[in-house]
Design a protein around this nucleic acid. Sequence first.
DNA 1: ATTGGCGAAATTGTATACGATCACCTGCTG
DNA 2: CAGCAGGTGATCGTATACAATTTCGCCAAT
Lengths: 233, 233
Amino acid sequence: MKTAMPDEEQIDISTHYIRDSIRDAIVDRRLAPGTKLSEADVGALFNVSRTLVRGALQALSYEGLVNVEKNRGAFVAYPSPEEARQIFATRRMIEPGILREAAKHMGPSHFHYLRQLLLEEGRLMNERGQTARRAEIKASGDFHLMLASMTGNAVMQRFMDELVARSSLVIALYGQSAISSCGHQEHQDIVTAIERGDLNHACHLMAHHIDHIEADLYMRENKGSDLREAFRR
Amino acid sequence: MKTAMPDEEQIDISTHYIRDSIRDAIVDRRLAPGTKLSEADVGALFNVSRTLVRGALQALSYEGLVNVEKNRGAFVAYPSPEEARQIFATRRMIEPGILREAAKHMGPSHFHYLRQLLLEEGRLMNERGQTARRAEIKASGDFHLMLASMTGNAVMQRFMDELVARSSLVIALYGQSAISSCGHQEHQDIVTAIERGDLNHACHLMAHHIDHIEADLYMRENKGSDLREAFRR
DNA sequence: ATTGGCGAAATTGTATACGATCACCTGCTG
DNA sequence: CAGCAGGTGATCGTATACAATTTCGCCAAT
């Protein structure tokens, strides 16, 4: 008779699992931008061959979270200021559209859920410690992802997943940590505006909200270090 | 002495080359939706090992042009009507934003280039033959891609690349070929509106243009056939 | 005639092997 | 002592080998 329940922790070790683990580590800032992700090292960490690791790293490179340089290896992405600007510019271009589309599908239960999310976000904001700080940043991104998911559009949701993840990298690099959480009130205002049915105002608030996130970054150039970066391509 | 110029056609056979070749074949409709892409077959075609083919197929699956099913293989994507709707809904959400952003960066030379593109498009429209038809469809997509590129935003451009490629798949599946080219005049109107500086009107036209493309599709359900599809997941 | 089961063949999943390229260190030379 | 040549080790790129899974054909049973 086969045991349906494995006796030991039998995680589905696969390309997907490795990819998700590394992605989580990156957006949680446990892996700093620029960190080298050696295929052998990662493989040893997960007890798999380089084959699977390569698959995971290639996937992450599609998402823009990892750069693979030919014959040199994979590194946690180190977005340039220009790249960062493009990421936020893209968000400004699409998030108003998301907001309008999401509003079409929102009922009372959705508003309740959003309020719940904001409550949690506020709670984290008032806590101390790095763990709380990480959780708060994640919650802040989750607000935008939640709106995207409410469009019921999987294609768009994947775009937003990527944008939010990369934004988190940018904030990790250029964020002035103290100020980064000032967006909480803006999230609430946006929800209120949607609830009132004033979509134009909501879009306006959203655009400014993204502006504020970007404005709170200090985009210094490549911290002078990576000489190779400067002359790449 | 080493010959800098290889005597025979020495193409850079690599994952990228294979990926691009297959993508071209898909968007050019030389590969029908649902076609199985066996790793061994593709490898034999390009004279490379399955390793590289797998990389290419994984990349294409990330772009949504190929579905890889575990232990079964990779297939040219066969977008469901629902998926098709999401793709066009996404385009409606972002293309107005692209248009506004592109307009900020456009000078006389850009308008000249766009007009050139439209001229070519019109020329193809009046030709006969499947080759011309393919070229026309490609040119029609290029118009949207050109606008995206004029934003100077590589992140957004990649999103549009994906959306246009997937749209081409959808049109291949559900398009009523005779009518598909009616969008040409609309492209011209959009350019004219931008040139006049009437962005609101241009956005309006763009939204309706995408509506028209979608309306010209006949989205029948999975052509009744693929039982497996119905219960996948 | 249709269904179910078994085994062979084909196909994918993963690991390993080997060649190619790059980074680094050493030692020579000016 | 600086700078460059060449070797050496580490890391990546690709092919191949083997394991796991699915598919398909065949035949018996209902």
